[in-house]
Design a protein around this nucleic acid. Structure first.
Lengths: 231, 231
DNA sequence: TAGATTGTTAATCGATTAACAATC
DNA sequence: TAGATTGTTAATCGATTAACAATC
């Protein structure tokens, strides 16, 4: 009875956050929680929490609430975090190294197998136990080691070429840290971390902070007026 | 005639993207563009583009389209990118250094004035022309140099303390790279870069890629069934 | 059983898209 | 002027919230 339920990306983006809070509760030894308590903690409405969770199944128990451990495991499974993912990082500059480090230490399930670069000074080095390989050999490496995820930390000009090579080699997901929109076929999963865009929305906030309505309206009118004049 | 128009964050998050594409057009020497052409390029509908832009003012010209340069400047001004922002980065590990580097090279308008750390081995070093200072002195430094933005790249356990100090010292915005939700007063702008949450949604995508409807439904039913059984 | 809290349907709200009159 | 394209209103779609019956 396949109701055509596409799961909205709004829901999916909330899942890691649920999971993070559930993990903290779990570590504190909390065993059960109600949607109301969770709401107070996370900041989503209790209604939304129940609605979200019921997208995937009936994980709770009426009159009781949700098992923290159980819900944590369910969400982990939904996200696919009960599996292991092999990653390569292309571009071994500061950012590549930072991510290698970050995931290496903190994230179980996501194993950084290798760093790649074209810079001969970097190739052969070991950064935090992770070897830097020659980008020349990326395709063979990805194929031979069944790499799942490619992290792109090169310059914008090389980003698409790197993506193409990774995809050709059989990668399944791309984590893009360059400030361009990489083109990928539908079957390839893609997440972008557009740092400068994020910073720009911070700038906007800073200029539209207190007395939001009036400020923004003033801006709107002024800008519009200026636009007319300039034309 | 202050209509109470709150600008939705959905619109604001699209602005940097418009700006990025307009900048590329500008650099290519393109002088005018219609909402339809922009739509083909960026991927938003022409209708949405016109709607978005008209939130701020009438930037176009009927029968003609939009001036690329003009629109670029308008959006820059709306985001506040015609101003300069002084930043400090707290936490001078890999990630802090990467961001120092990144913004230093690529982003005009956002000046990294200093890095901060508690590690004596790092204090006093210069990383890409940016000095590493003792975190002890952060409050004075921020006050004296009128720092606008604090970038938090420390460990999760120190994140809130760092934020509190920065806020006390008069910072206006916080760019948070730690995987926790920092508490800040309403007047403080805050942007989070929750890398692991982003990675988790990538994992989800990878497990729900082809034939999305059916896969997700199968999952839903299976998971629900399992939940019943386990209980 | 009585009380609590989920699961789920219905109501509301907001965001996107469509349509077209205004106008360059 | 005729053609093109915006600005803007109206229609649709989707997401969030409210309400309450189901049930543990």
């Amino acid at each position: 009875m396949s109701k055509n339920t596409r799961i909205s990306s709004a829901v999916i983006k909330r899942l890691p956050r649920y999971r993070r809070y559930l993990n903290e509760l779990r570590k504190k030894g909390v065993t059960k929680i109600s949607s109301n308590e969770l709401s107070a903690l996370i900041g989503y409405t209790a209604s939304q929490i129940r609605q979200d969770l019921n997208t995937f199944g009936g994980f709770g128990q009426q009159g009781y609430g949700y098992s923290v451990e159980g819900l944590y495991n369910e969400i982990s499974a939904i996200l696919g975090l009960d599996k292991e993912y092999k990653m390569v990082i292309v571009g071994s500059g500061n950012l590549g190294q930072a991510i290698a480090n970050y995931t290496y230490y903190y994230k179980s399930g996501f194993k950084v197998m290798g760093l790649f670069d074209i810079n001969p000074k970097l190739i052969g080095l070991k950064i935090n136990d992770i070897k830097v390989y020659d980008f020349e050999n990326i395709v063979d490496y990805v194929e031979d080691n069944h790499i799942d995820i490619g992290v792109i930390c090169v310059t914008r000009d090389n980003a698409q070429e790197v993506a193409d090579k990774l995809i050709f080699a059989g990668i399944k997901g791309i984590w893009n840290f360059t400030p361009i929109d990489i083109e990928v076929p539908d079957r390839i999963a893609l997440e972008n971390v557009h740092l400068s865009e994020n910073l720009h929305t911070l700038a906007f906030q800073m200029n539209n902070m207190s007395s939001k309505e009036s400020t923004i309206n003033k801006q709107k009118t002024e800008v519009a007026a200026k636009a007319k004049k300039v034309k």
